[in-house]
């Protein structure tokens, strides 16, 4: 597993949830604002996004791990996803 793979998976998931063209999502950088910046991302959509992240990245996200910082920017969400995938791999789960 590499960070690049996680990055690609995460962009794919965001394209699905936001209904955006892949090339627009490909233009997201670490500072691109998500929750609070994209009107599509209300709480129901974020819940869907997190559930999809769990399914596709094979991770489990606890509610208390969800904070503003993680959802604020693309970079924050990517760092979270990478950390979670590493955690899953290191425990062998």
């Amino acid at each position: 597993m590499s960070d690049t793979v996680t990055d690609q998976l995460l962009r794919g998931i965001l394209a699905s949830v936001l209904g955006l063209a892949p090339d627009r999502v490909a233009g997201f950088d670490a500072q691109t604002g998500l929750f609070g910046h994209l009107p599509e991302l209300d709480s129901m959509a974020v819940a869907g996004l997190l559930t999809e992240l769990e399914d596709r990245l094979d991770i489990v996200i606890d509610d208390d791990e969800i904070d503003g910082e993680m959802l604020e920017t693309y970079g924050g969400l990517l760092a979270f996803a990478i950390r979670k995938r590493e955690g899953t791999a290191s425990t062998g789960a």
Partner: peptide
């Protein structure tokens, strides 16, 4: 799975409104 997602949405919107639910 449907309930899990709906519960999560409620937790998130409560948090946005400054309330803590789990």
């Amino acid at each position: 799975a449907i309930l899990r997602q709906m519960l999560r949405a409620r937790v998130l919107s409560a948090r946005e409104a400054g309330r803590e639910e789990d």
